[in-house]
Design a protein around this nucleic acid. Structure first.
Lengths: 210, 210, 210, 210
DNA sequence: CATGAATGAGTATTCATTCAT
DNA sequence: TATGAATGAATACTCATTCAT
């Protein structure tokens, strides 16, 4: 911490790393205490520096959440897009998206919690227009998928897809609020259980073979 | 003091009514913008009075949420207790509880949203110990019910009841965040669709009779 | 309290009495908690009515202290003037004034405490100009008396009369802060002890006969 | 953190100095206008900074008075204890304590005024328990001393020591309210005049040698 | 006369942000 | 890069005062 020998060499890389470190700590606190309720001082303290020092790295508190959320969403949509581009049928795609979502939660738990809790409020701000955009894309993707599933005969036609969409969306993301990275359950298992419930239901009788 | 018997009653009733009016408006704003992010001024404005005037009715901002949440929880547990006392089998009880929950959302939408978004933070405060208590009771009730369902052979035994409990809990309550009282969907319908999904699953093939 | 039979008759007297009652209670609270630190609500409560109701009797909080203080000062100066007009020598006058002061404390304890604690601040306000005026009169009266005593050979000439004046003034009035009306000590006794100390000193040896 | 040894010391010293500077200005305003009646803004302004900035240095308005008063009392009792430990006879001790008191007033005028005016109210607060404690110690010290003086034959036995204690206590401290540091009179002179009055009295005749 | 609800200016306190070092 | 002191706008809360009933 005292003598920084390698300064010359890794400037860019080091800087990016440091930034990521800071953001990770900051995200954790925002997720834990809420964005509005967290003071910059607390966020800085979690990152091991003093309040004022954060302003060397970020323009404002807002740009901190911004970076946390946009980083997460970019990565998440990258994964989603791969799945969607692979041309699977509706059920398989749905399974893959759910699995991908839980993996996102595993990697970006704090970001997901923040997204879940704050995006409604933040979205009022023009700067966070991408949140609304993401929401919209999310909705059309899932609703389209459910409709396609019904069309393909894979999903029940007596369900209100609008409602089902909401239930699926909420349960997937809300899991971030109780998920413990490194705990007993990993993303894969959670995805399996979730898919079992949503696809097959939790009732016993009607499952002849499974 | 002199022959004002009717006044006393009338005043008490009026007072309680006014209080409820105010609380309803306040709850709406807290739900909409978040407890921490809502200023007392905004809350008061929503109630049609000035910021300081709220303090004639309530001790503090905290006691406002307190009253909103405790009123809701008391009523909700009242309903739950009736269901639980009626001695139905696990599946019927589960159905009834879900229906009751959605009815709670219909009546106390704002309170449920606040409960969902803020109880984690508020619960740190001793004053809101009842939130933790409620959480605990909720968990044991639902987990017990799921276990009983499995025992009775009504529910699949290959599911992780801990996980399923979380999914059910979250999806039920999170519905408050998009429910529009007086909108197209009423609590009953939502409950039916939700139960259909969770109990029977959304896949088509496995439902012999449908 | 309900049926006020004698309303017609004693209007003026009743009113004055009520006013005095209220003022007495108010003075007590102001003395106890300090003028600035006492709320009108507290003052009213001590008088057995609600905050707003005090405004039927008084224009403002300020006019309450005003009336308390001016009533006290008027009476006190009335007594002082009688003493000063009686043509006694310096020592006798001094004794009589001290005795009169302690009697004032006995009758207007609360007012004296308020006078002691608040007059400095209140005097900034033009309305309370009479406080400054009273102070001035007080100072010239006592200083004159001390000078006269020295001249008459009754008082030591090696003392700084300015300082002695301050000591006497302060100790007399500050007694109000611990005086308990109806307690073991009455005004007379206190005056005697005080005069003994100030006139003769507390040392033993030098008092040959007394 | 890196070879900043001198900094650490320097900073600590600077900090303490700044704190003392601020407290001195704050004490002056509290003494002048009264603790309750002084706004934090006024206190800050007197210190040359803005209201909010005071909170970088102090937790609350309360902790400002707290520090002012405890600092004063600690130093005062330090001086008192030295006097009391020196084994002088009652009269000499009494003289020394009075002198020490007036020196305290010279050094901590503002603190003494605050102590005098506010300690009764502040003492209700548990945090200021040390005020009550100090009061108690003060009383027992002085009463003991007076009793001892009577026993030693140095003080008159026909006086009510309880009363005399109060008179002495009050006059000593109340002097802070008119004392002008740097004015014509210094602490020493005031103490002499005061002791002359209290010990020997202000009457001329009874002093054989004077 | 008294009440109770409301007002609005003010108060202590918090906190994002700045900046000289 | 980081610190620490300061800023200033905003926030929860208080309280003297008003007024319809």
């Amino acid at each position: 911490m005292c003598a920084r020998r390698r300064d010359a060499e890794g400037t860019a890389a080091t800087r990016a790393t440091r930034r990521a470190e800071l953001l990770s700590a900051i995200a954790e606190v925002f997720a834990d205490r809420g964005y509005a309720a967290t003071t910059v001082r607390e966020a800085a303290e979690a990152a091991g520096i003093l309040g004022g020092s954060l302003y060397y790295h970020f323009d404002s508190k807002e740009s901190m959440v911004d970076e946390v959320l946009s980083t997460f969403l970019n990565e998440m949509w990258g994964d989603y897009d791969k799945v969607l581009a692979s041309g699977m049928d509706a059920t398989a795609t749905l399974r893959a998206l759910v699995a991908s979502s839980f993996k996102s939660i595993e990697r970006h738990r704090a970001a997901v919690v923040i997204y879940q809790n704050e995006s409604k409020h933040l979205a009022q701000n023009e700067r966070f227009g991408y949140l609304t955009e993401s929401q919209r894309r999310f909705e059309s993707t899932w609703k389209g998928l459910l409709a396609q599933g019904v069309e393909e005969g894979a999903l029940r036609s007596d369900l209100n897809t609008g409602l089902i969409y909401r239930f699926i969306r909420d349960t997937v993301w809300v899991a971030a609020s109780w998920y413990q990275p490194g705990g007993r359950l990993d993303a894969e298992e959670i995805a399996q259980q979730y898919l079992a419930m949503v696809l097959e239901g939790i009732q016993a009788n009607q499952h002849p073979a499974t």
